[in-house]
Design a protein around this nucleic acid. Structure first.
Length: 773
DNA sequence: GCCTTGAAGTTACCG
DNA sequence: ACCGGTAACTTCAAGGCG
């Protein structure tokens, strides 16, 4: 018989000593199935001086527990050069690691390659299978269902079902959002002590449940049961990899329970990089995605959900984490706690609907299963795709090697012309770095006579095209085709949105390729390549600037691949020059009615033609300034650019300062958020946010690298760092109002108003009577 | 010992 | 855990002065 299935995830198990691949799948008839594949064996490569001699020594290592099945000399390429490595095939995937270590020690062995690719991923690569895509295969049904509705054993080829390529991969998959509430006494809860009090669940069908119990043994067991009953394909949460899963697992252990949420009742497994996998399901932590939203600085669920319009703040019940205990103890308040959890779960499901479509496309393109792709960095997503491309070309995958970092020169940033400029066109090179890589055949395998990069002198052969050029050209062609297909579709239609997510995913991988080459941990690391790319980039923008000057076009600013120029009909000539003479795509990205610069690079405020204000670089868009300063600066910028009424802006700032002095501003607007980037003991210099963090730790609140600490500055005489307090432990009475006026509000406002002749003294609020006495 | 000043340390931005 | 370039803040330590 034949089945049509969508691949969701892959794992393997041993049947005797033989590995059996298990593909978690959804069938075209709606059933969930495990598609099994027998006969695929683990292997790795060995590059050696005298292959035959080494081959017999490898055979000699063979152990009965996992025999070396074959050692054969094969033809491959390594960094583009033909090589004849030994392909060593064994039986038990787990033994590859051990054999690698032993083989390394054999004299004459130069390198052991591809011994660090996990067996189940190895299978997907070799079979050219991508998660979330659809396939057909001849199969026969087998007895063991592996926890799914049915299971099949593949008998023959697995073919992609192209007719389903443009179907929404998430349509019909069951998603479950969950969130837990834990009792706490205003400190980080401890699973040995603090019970789980409520668990919220919401299914993609809209079923919403709040479980609660005084006895969390019952609660946790009930939760696992609910998960098994709803039997989701995808489990989503917010920060569950760092909190909910480890807490539930630990708490279950304390209570002598098993957290059986897997497809066959297994516990979640903690894996590499703080990720948890739930056997038989895709566990997706939406917080990983929230990191992609730069506009939201403090990535709490409520902030992100509000920003995305999933759950507006004013409509939701909001509690702070330290209030949970209080709202549980006081039974009159429990209804509020329930509502709060309900809103959290609805928000989580809302976020899933926003993020999963992109994740599914990234999965289809990078080849990583959905749960891994969501938590993987861009560099790894690209690398997994590169590994597949390498396999297709018979290229060996280089090992990851530890390297010291050697820095190199990057892009050019022009000194801006300070002041307000009118009618400014922003020209952007389209995908400048990938275009350079394609044009000059840049890559680790193409070093040689041909194209020579300016300044740095690294050169690359013209022909034949190298690995990166080929991959990038495929990406660019693919994306062009998708964008063409999108033209024929209704904007906003489901198919349009699907293709849009797909083209975005491709673009992200293409644009990551330069950074990837300069990343010391990259398998295909090539500093010279990255260095050559930026050198060509500098050359390109310099040439464009020279041409602009020649055409009499005033250049106001530029950064890397963008040029801000006085708009005129001559701009078209500049565009034509870049396209025809230089051979790069450039376009007018936007035209500002007005744009304002100080002397600082990477900072400007622009007024677009439709009246929108763009702020780049300034305090108003930074997460480490108080809302007070940010709001005031944004207001000042808008006022000055839109109306030019400087006095009004001055009055506004003065009024704001007066309010601060009178304590009439919400204390929330004074909080400064900064990330803890290392262990507290590793800081060399004292700092305000570290002080606040230390106070938190003393209170029993966990602070780890990555934690954002919100603090306010309190009155007092010592250095700033001695006066920082966690924001939730400070009252208005303690706040140093002078600091907020003089070191936050006024500097942020002056950054802009200073260029309009305003003096700092003009912004000081009139002294109140109280100050006077 | 105090004050000035520039370097160092730190964070978060731009493209 | 993709890159380098950049602004801006506070802290820290060196050097000058008395």
């Amino acid at each position: 018989m034949e089945v049509t299935f969508q691949l969701l995830d892959v794992s393997y198990e041993l049947v005797g000593k033989e590995p059996r691949i298990l593909m978690l799948s959804r069938l075209s008839d709606g059933r969930r199935a495990t598609i099994c594949y027998d006969g695929f064996k683990p292997y790795f490569y060995v590059l050696a001086e005298e292959p035959q001699k080494v081959a017999s020594e490898i055979y000699a290592l063979s152990r009965a527990s996992s025999p070396i099945i074959s050692v054969e000399e094969v033809e491959r390429r390594y960094f583009g050069r033909p090589v004849r490595p030994l392909k060593v095939t064994t039986l038990v995937p787990g033994s590859v690691r051990d054999y690698r270590e032993e083989v390394k020690e054999i004299p004459g062995v130069q390198e052991v390659l591809e011994a660090d690719i996990r067996f189940s991923m190895r299978f997907l690569i070799d079979m050219n299978l991508y998660p979330m895509r659809w396939y057909t295969a001849k199969v026969e049904e087998i007895q063991d269902h592996y926890g799914t509705d049915a299971a099949f054993l593949v008998r023959g080829q697995i073919e992609e079902d192209a007719s389903r390529a443009n179907l929404d991969p998430l349509e019909g998959l069951r998603v479950l959002a969950f969130d837990i509430e834990v009792f706490n006494e205003q400190r980080t809860p401890d699973p040995k002590r603090d019970p789980v009090i409520m668990i919220g669940l919401m299914s993609s069908e809209g079923e919403l449940k709040i479980l609660e119990s005084e006895d969390d043994r019952q609660l946790i067991a009930g939760f696992a049961e609910e998960v098994r009953r709803l039997n989701p394909d995808i489990i989503v949460g917010y920060n569950q990899n760092r909190f909910d899963w480890p807490y539930l697992i630990e708490r279950a252990k304390v209570l002598g329970l098993e957290l059986g949420v897997g497809r066959r009742g297994e516990e979640p497994q903690s894996g590499a990089y703080g990720h948890y996998s739930v056997p038989g399901r895709l566990n997706v932590d939406l917080l990983d995605f929230a990191f992609g939203i730069g506009e939201v600085k403090v990535k709490s669920l409520d902030e992100v959900a509000d920003y995305l319009g999933v759950m507006p703040k004013e409509k939701r019940v909001l509690l702070e984490w330290w209030q949970i205990g209080e709202y549980w103890k006081d039974k009159a308040k429990r209804e509020v706690l329930r509502k709060y959890l309900e809103h959290d779960v609805i928000s989580t499901m809302g976020l899933a609907q926003k993020f999963l479509p992109f994740g599914a496309q990234m999965s289809q393109i990078s080849g990583l299963p959905l749960d891994q792709v969501m938590s993987a960095s861009t560099g790894y997503r690209l690398e997994w795709r590169l590994m597949r491309e390498a396999f297709k070309r018979g290229e060996l995958v280089p090992n990851r090697v530890e390297r010291g970092e050697e820095s190199y020169e990057g892009a050019i940033v022009l000194e801006p012309r300070p002041g307000v400029h009118e009618n400014v066109a922003v020209l952007d090179f389209a995908s400048m770095y990938p275009s350079i890589m394609v044009k000059y055949n840049v890559g680790p395998d193409t070093r040689g006579e041909g194209y020579t990069a300016p300044e740095v002198g690294h050169s690359f052969r013209r022909e034949p095209p190298g690995f990166f050029k080929e991959v990038l050209e495929r990406f660019l062609r693919w994306r062009r085709e998708i964008r063409r297909a999108m033209e024929g579709l209704q904007k906003g239609s489901p198919e349009y949105r699907l293709l849009d997510e797909r083209q975005k995913a491709i673009k992200i991988l293409a644009n990551a390729s330069y950074g990837y080459l300069g990343w010391p941990s990259a398998r295909w690391y090539c500093r010279e390549c990255a260095e050559a790319v930026t050198a060509w980039g500098r050359n390109l923008i310099k040439t464009a600037i020279a041409k602009a000057r020649e055409l009499g076009i005033e250049v106001i600013y530029g950064d890397t691949d963008s040029l801000f120029v006085r708009n005129s009909e001559r701009v078209a000539q500049l565009v034509a020059f870049v396209e025809k003479e230089l051979g790069f795509d450039i376009k007018v990205d936007k035209v500002y009615r007005k744009v304002f610069f100080t002397e600082a690079k990477k900072r400007y405020v622009g007024l677009t033609q439709d009246g929108k204000i763009d702020v780049a670089g300034f305090e108003a868009v930074r997460g480490d300034w108080s809302e007070l300063a940010k709001e005031a600066q944004a207001a000042v910028a808008e006022l000055v650019l839109k109306t030019g009424r400087v006095e009004e802006a001055v009055e506004y700032v003065k009024e704001m300062g007066r309010k601060v002095k009178e304590g009439k501003v919400s204390i929330d607007k004074l909080v400064i958020w900064k990330t803890i980037t290392r262990r507290l003991s590793e800081y060399k210099a004292e700092q305000a946010h570290v002080t606040a963090a230390k106070i938190m730790v003393k209170q029993g609140i966990k602070v780890e690298p990555g934690t954002k600490v919100g603090y306010v500055i309190a009155k007092g005489s010592g250095p700033l760092y001695t006066r920082a307090r966690p924001y939730f432990m400070a009252s208005w009475e303690e706040v140093d109002r002078e600091y907020y006026v003089e070191k936050q509000l006024i500097p942020a406002a002056m950054r802009i108003l200073g260029y309009f002749g305003v003096k700092e003294s003009q912004l000081l609020p009139r002294r109140t009577l109280k100050d006077f006495f």
